[in-house]
Amino acid sequence: MTPASTTNPTSADVLSCRGVGVHRGDNAVVSDLTMTVRTGEWVALVGPNGAGKTSLLHAVAGLLPATGELRVDGHHPMALGRRALARVVALMPQRPVVPPGMSARHLIALGRTPYLGRFATESAADRDAVDHEIARLGLAGFADRPADQLSGGELQRCILARALCQQPRLLLLDEPTSALDIGHQQTVLDLVDELRAERGLTVLAAMHDLTLAAQYADRMVLLDQGRVVHDGPPADVLSAARLGATYGARVEVLDRPAGPAVVPIRATQPPHPRAAHRPDQLGGTR
């Protein structure tokens, strides 16, 4: 697969960005970014902390204003309107807010919001849609428990169910598994991949774990300081030299049947000089 379509947006592109910039306050967190995501594709957004992954996802979801030419399903997110956009794009946040005392079923049902009138509550059809996702994702066992008592893996599956209730074309995952153990990471990512095949979903996922990202994504877009460093199949993007340059990381990339595996190498010498210039790596995810 080649990234040839980046310069030629077609109708098969769920998302196309051309010269897109995103600002938080006075800081440009994404600048002059050009990429596309085709229907049915799984694209992984990777890059160090502060590279602009979350900001780009938020711009696509219409949560942050963007400059340049940004098209989601052919429309600019801000021009589409909140409700209409929420029927096309669903966001699965890294650390979902769980209101105390709200049941898992109720939290999932919030995904029906873009289909309800302004003052309406769920109809029988909406409740059916919610129960359908609960059954499909195997959540029936704890759907009536308070969501704030669920484990991390159960909660992320509920949030995935909520996103599916929006019946989106494009599913945005913001580091969906970084709070989970390796088994639950695989459970959630496998589910997303099954649903992608079942429903023709398109997935754009910001991910930290490069090995997992390479196993699930058709294509990887490597960001650094708000710009695209490389865009291509995982095997092309993941090279020890490139990861050293963007992450300041010492890694070895193993060629495995399932995809390239990134293995960190313990320093035997003083740290890489680049690390000293990147104190922000220890900070948060933005």
Partner: peptide, 15 residues
């Protein structure tokens, strides 16, 4: 109820 999940998530749900 939708507002209870915070500004970012409520907005992404269409509010």
């Amino acid at each position: 109820d939708v507002l209870a999940v915070g500004d970012v998530e409520a907005a992404s749900l269409g509010v």
